[in-house]
Design a protein around this nucleic acid. Sequence first.
DNA 1: ACCTGAACACCGTTCAAGT
DNA 2: ACCTGAACACCGTTCAAGT
Lengths: 184, 184
Amino acid sequence: MGVSARRGTPLTVEEIRATALRLIDAGGVESLSMRKLAAELDVNPMSLYHHVANKTELIKGICLETVVPLLHLPPADGAPWQDQLRALAYAYRRLARTHPALWTYVHNHPDVIELKEGGLWEVLLRILPAAGVPEDKRLGTADVLHGFVWGLLLAESLGHIGGDQAEANFEIAIDLITRGLPEH
Amino acid sequence: MGVSARRGTPLTVEEIRATALRLIDAGGVESLSMRKLAAELDVNPMSLYHHVANKTELIKGICLETVVPLLHLPPADGAPWQDQLRALAYAYRRLARTHPALWTYVHNHPDVIELKEGGLWEVLLRILPAAGVPEDKRLGTADVLHGFVWGLLLAESLGHIGGDQAEANFEIAIDLITRGLPEH
DNA sequence: ACCTGAACACCGTTCAAGT
DNA sequence: ACCTGAACACCGTTCAAGT
């Protein structure tokens, strides 16, 4: 009854997403096509559209269900703001490096996914008062800090920064931020 | 003798590049196609390949001849390093905002163009010693600073930062960097 | 020298038809 | 319900042929 002639099992969204993510990890989002994905799944290209609205929605789904939950935010445990900021930055870095190709792509296509999600902003805004940032500058500073770390991670992902230096550079970056954050 | 039936003048690389840049400014690099470009120039799509090797080379050419020269680096005039750094950041920002779509694109496609060009890195490495950055950290710090500013400009270009706040945020960013740069 | 038409190997997606 | 083939409107690019 409609199950593919070439496959025993019917398609599922989960299988489609998992395979798509594998292809993205291997060759980047640009190289993922619905037709290649179908071939990889041993299925007619058009079968995919029964489980997924279109390519954009597919990518959105992968992000929301597979990638975003990987961000492990530091708890509000009263630790010094420097430590919490460092923990947040490293959590963000781990996320970016888990699926660099997808991460790079979605962060350059704001239409695909809302950036200010996953609680990252909340944690940032919780930390900034403790760092001595005056209230009227907190939103702006949150934008700036995210832009900073984001840019550095992007540069890493794109290979602008040598793999061996990436670790040391990230430390330099966090030191610079924690030194510069409090206004004297 | 080969001149297009539909046009009086023969094609030139300059005309192709200028028109392509106009289309990119209007709709982004993704929406530029060789066929649309040809239509805009009132010419057969294949005529373009007589003046340009392929699409990537076309974009590379536009960057090298039309965009990169727009970066106005601050002179080594002995001004305080804070002022020079601020001038450099603003020069970079002006460049990014002149052709945001193209700028965003090439900075995410390292294959298209070598990032560390245009003398930006030289100026950075000239400034850092005056800021008290120890020699063994200068290269890393240059990478970090570029990543920072780059990320912020990217966030601006992609609309992640409200247009009215962009100016104020950039000031916050430069203040933070100049405060955090010197090690105590 | 410069331009062009036909063709190739790709895309995403719609729609009507199959089981 | 689930899958599929043919078709449409696009891509970038090659190649042989035109003037």
